[in-house]
Nucleic acid binder design. Structure first.
Lengths: 134, 134
DNA sequence: GATAAAATGAGAATAATTATCATTCTCAAA
DNA sequence: TTTGAGAATGATAATTATTCTCATTTTATC
């Protein structure tokens, strides 16, 4: 049985490219946008490879996947410390935030339950000041 | 606080049915399973109506949507206090937990940033004791 | 260099969700 | 009670996101 957990990632040209684009853009890119940007630099890269690279990079903890408002995934390079997102339900604006308290509480819970934590995803939804009702 | 966004929901027979099934099952049902269960009680209910009902119920804060491991949504009735989920990446087991500390930190952040909070979704991924590598 | 394993590209296939549209239901005003 | 407007529904088509297949290419190992 393979322990995908500790598999060192093989950083191929395509995976490197995907990671580089994510790191440079510092935005929450989705697979399709990533594909566009990748093609702009590399005539031949398949959307399937984008997805496969993202899966491998995520497995290696180099990228994080998020589910913001819409029903497709967004990705960003894993930064330390982790941060979280608030998405405005009306205008889609994203506000990022960090919270040592949240991370602490999560770690305490995982330790107590003997859970090995790979990924933390805290997503808030609501209305930003401009969109909240009077 | 009554707001423009959360118009009072019109609890039609179909929406009531969807909500009842969720409340009775106390599980994390996906749209398709919900459709099966609904059809078992009501000869005529469309999958589209399931989705529309879920959207309306979510808007009314009566149900919560989650993105657990697989790439489709799961739903459960909104319970108070909110709870969160840890999903094992290998076996899919779900461990629920509550955390006043997390909720407190979230509320402090939203107050400070003048954000109106509608939904909190904290999802942890990793390996459960049975699946974590030696 | 030979060979096995892994990664890739292209596009088909699948799954999840949303859109369309004709019909039905709800409810307030006449 | 009728009626008319707007909302909800059912059936299904359409769209979107993601995964799969398979032939080919690249990389790692001997």
């Amino acid at each position: 049985m393979k322990t995908a957990q500790n598999a060192p990632i093989h950083l191929t040209r395509q995976r490197r490219l995907v990671l580089d684009i994510l790191r440079e853009s510092k935005e929450h890119l989705d697979a399709d946008t990533l594909h566009q940007k990748a093609k702009a630099r590399n005539a031949k890269i398949s959307l399937a490879t984008i997805y496969r690279s993202l899966a491998a990079l995520r497995e290696a903890r180099l990228v994080q996947e998020h589910r913001l408002g819409d029903n497709h995934a967004h990705f960003e390079p894993a930064r330390d410390p982790l941060h979280h997102h608030f998405t405005c339900l009306k205008c889609g604006r994203i506000v990022e935030f960090r919270s040592p308290q949240v991370m602490k509480a999560v770690r305490v819970f995982c330790t107590r339950e003997k859970l090995e934590l790979v990924d933390v995803r805290l997503e808030l939804h609501g209305y930003c000041p401009a969109c909240r009702p009077a």
